[in-house]
């Protein structure tokens, strides 16, 4: 076996994860935030590993 098989497993797993999640929770472009947080006037609200739960 070569790295080709393991790399393809990684990409296939990633695609499966994205596809399953798209079925469960479709994207909605009408709820899109401004392109840039900087200058948006909105409070940052993303999940982050350094943050306690909000």
């Amino acid at each position: 076996m070569t790295r080709k098989s393991t790399a393809l497993i990684a990409i296939a797993g990633l695609l499966a994860l994205i596809a399953a999640d798209l079925l469960a929770a479709p994207l909605n472009p009408y709820h899109a935030p401004p392109a840039f947080a900087l200058g948006s006037g909105q409070v940052a609200s993303g999940g982050f590993c350094g943050a306690l739960p909000d």
């Binding site: 990684a10 990633l14 999640d21 994207l27 609200s45 993303g46 999940g47 739960p53 909000d54």
Partner: peptide, 27 residues
């Protein structure tokens, strides 16, 4: 179970910032 976590659990992972850069790292 915190409100922010619950919101993100119900949203698509393609709207989560660290998920997007993680996906980008692998790809």
């Amino acid at each position: 179970s915190a409100p922010g976590s619950v919101t993100r659990l119900h949203e698509n992972l393609l709207t989560d910032y660290t998920s997007l850069t993680d996906i980008g790292l692998i790809a």
